[in-house]
Design a protein around this nucleic acid. Structure first.
Lengths: 146, 146
DNA sequence: TATTCAATAGACTTGTGAATCTATTGAAAT
DNA sequence: ATTTCAATAGATTCACAAGTCTATTGAATA
């Protein structure tokens, strides 16, 4: 796929967390179950979300993960960056790293448009938008190919 | 990058072969050198090109690879397919395999446009076009990231 | 205090595409 | 015929992302 597995998981995990919307913290194990992400691997990803300041983690009895920031302040692009993904680092269609506006590969224009659209979307969409339209991203757990 | 390493190599190898334009067959080793593709790996890819009928291979003294078809009859899309790449199999931006016109992911339209552009280009561009504009694809050997 | 629960760190394993190595086959040249 | 050259097959290795396992830490409950 386009995003790597890890960043896709990150999006899904965050989406899963906000849609759950329970009163207390959500356990990693439960989140893993609803999102269908391998639980130990999810833990690692959630650690990154904690470090980025999106969620808080509580150890011990009754612990788990809980949102720390208002949803409107968590942009998709931030989640992706926290997971280590950066669209601008993605090489062009041909993997040609010289590809640029002055020295374009045959598909440079389309590629550029895709990147721009992606970035614009990721920048302007927050987790609040995701919550409102809860079809998005949650359903992504049905995806298969890597 | 977008294409996998193997299909990028395939394009570059074919481009390298036609641009070389020498009288006799071109040795795998020489082709590997000009295209900067690991030579043993190139052999395998060339095998696929032989099987696809684009080139002929001659063993032994003075052997190597030589074009079998007229350049106008070798389309980029055929080379890619022979190398095992199929744009239509590429999952959507989110790796969401349910993504379709009726059930689109947030970036479905842009993604679709990219795929279409790519396919159109790959279908309508032949190796003859590559030869004419010999900047293309050859320079790709400078690419780095995988 | 003792127990139980759940995140965490970090070592370890797995899976896969890419790359390498070795032995074999087939063809030209001498 | 023998030698030499170059593609080929297929086993093996490598690199890296993804996934797993185990022991530890910290917090709540009893």
């Amino acid at each position: 796929m386009f995003l790597n597995q890890t960043s896709q998981y990150a999006l899904r995990a965050m989406a899963g967390l906000i849609v759950a919307d329970q009163n207390g913290p959500m356990k990693s194990k439960d989140l893993a179950q609803t999102t269908e992400i391998p639980s130990h691997y999810l833990s690692k990803i959630m650690r990154k979300m904690v470090e980025a300041g999106f969620v808080e983690s509580k150890k011990g009895h009754g612990g788990g993960f809980i949102l720390k920031k208002p949803l409107e302040q968590i942009r998709i692009i931030d989640v992706l960056n926290a997971a280590g993904f950066d669209m601008d680092e993605q090489p062009c269609v041909f993997g040609w790293d010289q590809c640029s506006d002055c020295n374009p590969c045959p598909l440079h224009p389309v590629w550029k448009r895709l990147k721009e659209s992606f970035n614009e979307w990721a920048f302007n969409t927050t987790m609040e938008d995701i919550r409102k339209e809860n079809r998005l991203l949650i359903d992504m757990k049905f995806s298969q190919k890597s």
